[in-house]
């Protein structure tokens, strides 16, 4: 009888990879809207993987920020642009084949390297919990300066986006 979290790991990992595949190469539709929808599913199943890793805060943030904000932004832009034309274009066979071969080689190499080196061997049993309280404590003590810098970065991004989307860009 396998351990229950292990079964969940395989389910969520398979879902993540399948939906990620459908974001990139969907055989039924080339529309960016379907890609965005499958990106939502990928992110939600990845949040499931985060829960299995006891990173509860990050799982919530992943769903709130990615599925909630980033995808909505993507969909807004897709609706703003007229992308009917994309579906008529053909993929170039040569570039597709070259991409598949090189990426397959990279994936094979990485997976082989991971399995051969066995980074998980000899580690003690995991006990760390990524709940909100310990993460918050760390953020406001050891990582206070990066935290403040990130808030400035968000302000800069906001100002930049408003400037970029003005009608007459100078």
């Amino acid at each position: 009888m396998p351990h229950l979290p292990d079964i969940f790991f395989y389910v969520f990992a398979a879902l993540t990879l399948l939906c990620g595949f459908l974001v990139v190469v969907n055989p039924f539709s080339r529309s960016p809207v379907t890609s965005a929808m499958f990106l939502v599913l990928t992110i939600i199943s990845m949040a499931g993987l985060f829960v299995l890793l006891h990173a509860f805060f990050l799982a919530a943030v992943q769903i709130l920020v990615y599925a909630g904000a980033v995808i909505v932004l993507f969909l807004f832009v897709i609706m703003l642009l007229d992308l009917k034309e994309e579906q008529r274009r053909k993929l170039k066979t040569f570039s597709l084949a070259a991409g598949v071969i090189s990426v397959g080689a990279i994936a094979g190499l990485t997976v082989k390297a991971i399995l051969d080196s066995g980074p998980g061997k000899g580690l003690p049993a995991p006990t760390v919990e990524g709940a909100t309280a310990p993460l918050g404590k760390l953020l406001f003590t050891q990582f206070l300066l990066p935290f403040e810098i990130v808030s400035v970065l968000l302000l800069v991004a906001m100002v930049g986006v408003i400037l970029l989307s003005k009608k007459d860009l100078k």
């Binding site: 990139v24 190469v25 570039s95 597709l96 991409g99 598949v100 990426v103």
Partner: peptide, 9 residues
């Protein structure tokens, strides 16, 4: 790798 494939293809 899937993401890389998407950027390339």
């Amino acid at each position: 790798s899937l993401g890389l494939l998407g950027v390339l293809a």
